[in-house]
Each structure stands twice: as structure tokens, then as C-alpha cells.
């Protein structure tokens, strides 16, 4: 019983943390720029394909691919911000349409380059580790630790570093920040690129435990939106409780009740939460 409970908790934790990583990217782009990024799932897909193509086709180690994926997707994000998004600031509906178009284009490019069949990323840590209470797959333990390190790193970046503080200044009052000599355009570009990079990193990190195909991003796009809406956009850290409810509780309820019912309960919960607490489920004290 303790063994099963631990396994289920770790399953839920790994799903929730992986979603937090992806949802954090979405929250940064929305929170800092007010852009609803429907290309987020496509960024994740590109990251996963990088984690596939490098070890399988180019002989580069998976671990190198895991480092390069966010960098490459971040550069793609910066480019897209420069040629498309920059011209659409403050036009919410247009950014939704434009990012959806970008998403379709990226997915079609992936299909042209690698075909439409599913790909497999071989598990770089294929064994299991004996934790005493239970034996758990090694890569999932790595994933849990890795996500925690990245999440803490990103939150520290925004709290304590110079660039982080400037970014937050731009969000709070773009015009005042401009008068202070902060380059709003540059900050927006950083935001979009780093949001995209997190999606790419998430895609690469989950690739070995799922399957890589051109449409894999859709589910994550949806779940990320739920996590962000649920947590609220007042504080970046809100994506973590949001993700725990969306992915973690669904995971546990799937075991206890049934998969379809679990998902329905989560959807209903999100809808009720949006009505009752449109500002998000986290306390206002967390807001920046």
C-alpha cells in the first residue's frame, strides 16, 4: 500500500512539475507582454524533436540536446517576436490569430522535415532506483529534480537579478520604465524568447517518457492554459499550484476513479474556480 501510494505520488509529482515548466513559459509571455501565445504547444513539439533528432540522427548525446533545445527554441522565439509579435502589441485578438498561424506553420515544418510518423527518444536513464518504499524509474526521478532546479532558478532570476528586476519594472509600468531608460522592446523580446525556451525545454525533457509526434503539443497547450488560468496571472509562482491541480490531481484521480471522470472533474473545477476566483486560486499576498 505504501509502495503504491509512493509510486502514485511520484507519478503525480513528475506530471505536475513537467507541466509547471511549460506553463511557466506561457505565464511569462502572458504576464509580461499580454500576449496569449497559442504557439506554445508547437514550441514544445520543436523542443521534443530536437531531443529526438540529435541523438538519433546526429549522434549527439541526449544530455547535450536537453541543453541545446531551450537555446534553439529560444532563438526561434526571439526571431518570431522580431518579425511578427512586435507589430501586434496591444492587439490581443490579432496576437491570438498570429500565434495560432505560427503554430500551424511550425508543425507543418516539423512534418516536412521529419515526416508524420511517431518517433521514439530512447530513455537515457533506463534503469530503476530502489527508494526503500518503492522502486521508481530513474529518468522520472531525474525529471522531478531537474524541474525543481529549473523552476527555482527561474523564480530566483526574476526576484534577485538585475535583468529580472528590470523585466518586472517593465510589466508594472511600461511607460514609467521607458522614461527610466529601460528598453521595453528589448525586454519584451527577452520575455517571448525565454517563454518559448521553457516550452522547448519541457518538450525535450518529457520526450523520453512519451512519444514524439507533430501533434503532441496540443494537449500540453491546453493543460498549460488551464494551469495558468487556475493559478492566476498575478504571480508567476501560481503556475505551480495550478499545475498540481491540473496534472497532479488528474493523475491521482485517474487511478482512483477513472480517466474520463478525472478529467471531467478537473475541467469542472477550473470552470468553477474561474467564476469564484477569476484572479486565480493563490492568495493575493503572493502577487507581485
Amino acid at each position: 500500500m505504501a509502495e503504491l501510494a509512493t509510486t502514485l505520488l511520484l507519478n503525480a509529482l513528475s506530471a505536475a512539475l513537467a507541466l509547471s515548466l511549460v506553463a511557466l513559459g506561457l505565464a511569462i509571455i502572458y504576464g509580461f507582454m499580454g500576449v496569449i501565445n497559442l504557439a506554445h504547444g508547437a514550441f514544445l513539439t520543436v523542443g521534443a524533436y530536437i531531443a529526438w533528432v540529435m541523438p538519433e540522427r546526429l549522434g549527439i548525446s541526449f544530455w547535450v540536446a536537453l541543453v541545446l533545445a531551450p537555446i534553439i527554441v529560444g532563438v526561434i522565439g526571439a526571431f518570431i517576436e522580431r518579425v511578427v509579435i512586435r507589430h501586434l502589441y496591444d492587439r490581443l485578438l490579432d496576437t491570438i490569430l498570429a500565434t495560432w498561424g505560427i503554430s500551424l506553420a511550425l508543425v507543418e515544418l516539423v512534418k516536412l522535415a521529419f515526416g508524420t510518423t511517431s518517433k521514439s527518444v530512447s530513455n537515457p536513464l533506463s534503469g530503476s532506483i530502489d527508494l526503500g518504499v518503492t522502486v521508481y524509474p530513474a529518468y522520472r526521478l531525474f525529471l522531478i529534480g531537474f524541474c525543481i532546479v529549473i523552476l527555482v532558478g527561474v523564480f530566483m532570476f526574476f526576484k534577485s537579478t538585475d535583468v529580472g528586476v528590470r523585466l518586472r519594472a517593465v510589466i508594472q509600468d511600461p511607460d514609467a520604465a521607458s522614461l527610466q531608460g529601460l528598453n521595453k522592446t528589448r525586454m519584451y523580446q527577452y520575455s517571448f524568447a525565454s517563454g518559448a525556451a521553457l516550452a522547448g525545454l519541457g518538450g525535450a525533457a518529457i520526450a523520453p517518457i512519451t512519444t514524439v509526434n507533430p501533434t503532441m503539443g496540443v494537449t500540453y497547450l491546453l493543460e498549460s492554459f488551464f494551469a495558468v488560468i487556475l493559478g492566476g496571472t498575478g504571480a508567476l509562482i501560481a503556475v505551480v499550484p495550478g499545475s498540481i491541480i491540473v496534472a497532479g490531481s488528474a493523475n491521482i484521480m485517474t487511478f482512483m476513479i477513472s480517466p474520463i471522470l478525472a478529467q471531467t472533474i478537473v475541467f469542472v473545477f477550473v470552470i468553477v474556480a474561474m467564476i469564484v476566483r477569476p484572479q486565480g486560486i493563490v492568495p493575493e499576498a503572493w502577487h507581485e
Partner: peptide
């Protein structure tokens, strides 16, 4: 048992 279309996380169904 049924899962929604496009499900790719079966980690909790497998122990079931």
C-alpha cells in the same frame, strides 16, 4: 476503460 483522445500520459492507468 476509456481515455480521452490524444492521451499520452498513462502512468496512473498502468498501476490500475
Amino acid at each position: 476503460e476509456y481515455v480521452s483522445l490524444d492521451t499520452t500520459d498513462f502512468t496512473s492507468i498502468i498501476p490500475r
